[in-house]
């Protein structure tokens, strides 16, 4: 296993960073929720997005993907506007964002991951189906391919979403709380999968809420509380000071414990 913080910082000189956010301000119902975010994410890392509830974590990744109107600033993917780099970005939304009673099978959902690169009028073929079966296999759900999705448990649903993201076959992934409400076995399987994706050189931006596991999972961290509090390698960012600044007075007992963990690692 790689010690995340040991990775040397990469020089963005050769090619543009996978995601560059410049002076981004986003409003929700006219109330700004993100102020002047400036950040360039390095390639080939698992990057955590952390912050208290209402800090704008989901808003940030939705804004990066163009799902929310931007008030000011811009986002570039691989140095180009998002509209020209759609295939480069994969997405794992929050599990509750869809109706799990929808009349489709697990295989149908995973197949949606290839829709983006088919273009209008083209239908998925046998090669696409085989590719998706392979993606399901990678998340350990191959035997569930023909199940109706309402029959799945929470952890299995999360795996299906990850398989669909794998089917997108992108270089950059944005994931909204993939670890929320899954059992320990699924959490271990998911982080293993994310590390495998990282080894293939992919960049993963992961919204996360559990401060205890965060320093173990992420190479870099973005601390967010309506503004960018800190961004950098986990060792530099995951400190008591930064956590205080990020979470203000709202630190819970759990996160205080995590602070102590962070304190021992310094």
């Amino acid at each position: 296993m790689t010690r995340p913080a040991d990775d040397p910082p990469r020089e963005p000189a050769v090619h543009p960073p996978p995601i560059e956010v410049h002076d981004l301000t986003v409003s929700y119902d006219k109330k700004p929720v993100l102020w002047n975010i400036d950040v360039a994410f390095p390639e080939g890392q698992i990057i955590g997005v952390l912050g208290p509830n209402g800090a704008g974590k989901s808003t940030l990744i939705k804004a990066i993907m163009g799902l929310l109107p931007i008030e000011s600033g811009w986002v570039k993917i691989n140095g180009r506007p998002l509209a020209r780099e759609r295939r480069a970005v994969g997405y794992v939304p929050q599990r509750e964002s869809v109706d799990w009673d929808f009349p489709v099978t697990v295989a149908d959902v995973v197949l949606m991951g290839v829709y983006g690169r088919l273009g209008l009028f083209r239908r998925p073929g046998r090669a696409d189906r085989e590719f998706c079966a392979n993606c399901l296999e990678q998340v350990g759900m191959a035997t569930y391919a023909d199940r109706q999705i309402s029959q799945l448990s929470g952890g299995q649903r999360q795996r299906v979403f990850l398989a669909r993201a794998l089917a997108q076959d992108s270089r950059i992934y944005l994931m909204d709380e993939p670890f929320a409400g899954v059992d320990a076995a699924t959490e271990a399987a998911i982080i293993e999968l994310l590390r495998a994706m990282k080894r293939q050189g992919r960049t993963l931006l992961v919204v996360h809420h559990d401060l205890q596991t965060a320093p173990e999972y992420f190479d870099s961290m973005l601390m967010l509380n309506m503004r960018l509090v800190a961004f950098g390698p986990t060792r530099d960012v995951f400190t008591t000071q930064v956590l205080h600044k990020t979470y203000g007075g709202r630190l819970t007992i759990l996160s205080e414990a995590a602070e102590q963990v962070a304190g021992t690692r310094r």
């Binding site: 509209a83 149908d108 983006g116």
Partner: peptide, 19 residues
């Protein structure tokens, strides 16, 4: 079929894919 299915099931995911 696929655009309508993607829209009906998960509109944000469909948008991300440019559907």
């Amino acid at each position: 079929y696929k655009e309508l299915l993607a829209m009906a099931f998960d509109r944000e995911f469909a948008a991300v894919q440019g559907l």
